[in-house]
Each structure stands twice: as structure tokens, then as C-alpha cells.
Simulated assay, not measured.
Amino acid sequence: MDFWTDHTKTTEEIAQDLLGCLVIKETDEGVTSGWIVETEAYLGEIDGAAHSYGLKKTPRLASMYKESGTIYIYSMHTHLMLNVVVQEEGKPEAILIRAIEPYTGMDLMAERRGKAGFVVTDGPGKLTKAMNITKLDDGTLAWDPPLRIDVDTRKSPKKIEVSPRIGIPNKGKWTDAPLRYTVAGNPYVSRKKGKIEADFGWDEPTN
């Protein structure tokens, strides 16, 4: 079954499956891409930290209610956040892509960020700026250019670490819910602590 139409998996499971998938953004300046190393699951109607909690509907949230694979872009503190809807139409559950490990277009990403090294894409607002992801990408589909998530060309994490989401204050049990997933040992994970693995936490790539 296709990755985006297989609704037998939970949003938490899909958030882990997305680790190692390749985000690609095509622009006039060039193509940038990176392996997903950090995700957060948002569980829609029941999730006190989700924009769609209680099935809230506003024009800004329109993409959340569309088909699986729909890109949802929103702004937070002037930064844009890249999300993808992962359940069937009308079930507004999505995954936030929090960090990527650059693959192609590293120089272009560094130029856009005005920085080099791990800090170029080790956070959700950083990666969208580095890849020139904009609000024009909101409502598009994850398999259609210019912004795609390639679920076939991928790397496999050796170990996935699970922890509470970041920046979720005053949401009761949802503040500490273990819904953040990271590639253990990867230096591009936001707020990285601990050892950096020589292989950045990957097994050999699989196609």
C-alpha cells in the first residue's frame, strides 16, 4: 500500500517512519534536500497541543483537513514550520518536520541562513529558511514538486529516541507526551545533547 494512503498506522508510527526520508525543495536558485532526523506527532482532535484540537476549523487550518500527504505550513514567531498531514481527509493529524541533515545544496542552504555547520538545519524554522520553504507550499501534496518528501529514497536510523515535544507549555499531559522522535547520535537534531555518532546514527542507505 502507498505510504500516504496506508491508514493502518498511527500518526506516532508514521512520525518514526518519516525519519530518514528525503525532503526536497526545487527553486530557481537550485535544489536543496535533506534527510529527516527529527519529527513531532500531533494527534488532532484529542491533542491539546495541536492546532486542530477539538476539531477547530479556521481558514489557516484548511490544509489540516485535506488528504494524507498534504503539506501544512504555519508561522510561529516569524518562522515557518513544515508539517505533513498523515491521516485520511477530515482527520486532522499531522507531523512537524523539526530538523534535517543536508544532502544536496548545502552551500545554498548555508548562504540563505548566513551560517555554516550543524546549525544550518537543526530546527524547524531553520530548515524552512535554508530550503526556501514558503507559505506558497501550504496545501500542496508531498509527492508533487517543488516541495516533496521522498519516502522511497531513504536512510534507516540505527536507533530512534523518543522524548517530549519541544515548546509545548501549559498543555497538561500533552506538554510531556512522548511524541518527539529523533535519530540517535545525529548532530542535526535540534538542541542536540550527548554523543555524535561517526555515522550520524544511520545504517547503510536502503532504496
Rank of each mutant, 00 (worst) to 15 (best):
D2L: 03
F3A: 01
F3T: 10
F3L: 00
W4G: 01
D6T: 00
H7M: 04
T8Y: 06
K9Y: 13
K9A: 13
E13Y: 02
E13W: 02
E13P: 01
E13F: 01
I14G: 01
I14M: 13
I14A: 03
Q16H: 07
D17T: 01
L18R: 06
V23H: 01
E26R: 13
T27Y: 01
E29N: 09
G30L: 06
V31P: 00
S33N: 11
G34M: 05
G34I: 05
G34Q: 00
W35C: 02
W35F: 15
I36S: 00
V37L: 02
E38F: 03
L43D: 02
L43K: 01
L43I: 03
L43N: 08
L43G: 00
E45R: 08
I46C: 02
I46L: 05
A49H: 04
G54V: 10
K57S: 12
R60V: 09
A62D: 15
M64D: 04
Y65G: 14
Y65S: 14
K66H: 13
K66S: 14
S68V: 05
G69I: 08
I73F: 08
I73G: 02
Y74Q: 09
Y74F: 15
S75N: 14
S75P: 07
H77L: 10
T78C: 05
H79W: 15
L80F: 14
L80P: 03
M81K: 03
L82E: 03
N83P: 06
V84T: 12
V84G: 00
V84P: 00
V85S: 00
V85R: 00
E93F: 12
L96P: 02
L96A: 09
R98T: 01
R98A: 07
R98C: 08
P102H: 07
Y103M: 13
Y103S: 15
D107L: 12
L108A: 07
M109H: 06
A110I: 04
A110Y: 05
E111D: 15
R113T: 04
R113K: 13
R113E: 03
R113N: 09
G114F: 00
F118W: 12
V119R: 01
V119M: 03
G123W: 06
P124E: 08
T128K: 08
K129W: 03
K129L: 15
K129T: 12
A130S: 07
I133W: 04
T134A: 08
T134G: 02
T134H: 04
K135M: 15
D137W: 10
T140G: 13
L141S: 10
L141A: 09
A142Q: 09
A142K: 08
P146M: 04
P146I: 05
I149V: 15
V151C: 10
D152A: 12
T153D: 11
R154E: 03
S156T: 15
P157Y: 03
P157R: 05
I160P: 10
V162E: 13
P164I: 01
R165M: 06
R165A: 08
I166R: 01
G167F: 10
I168E: 12
N170A: 15
N170P: 09
W174V: 11
D176Y: 04
P187C: 14
P187T: 14
P187Y: 06
P187L: 12
Y188E: 02
Y188F: 15
V189I: 10
R191W: 07
G194H: 12
G194S: 12
A198V: 12
D199H: 07
G201L: 08
W202V: 12
N207E: 13
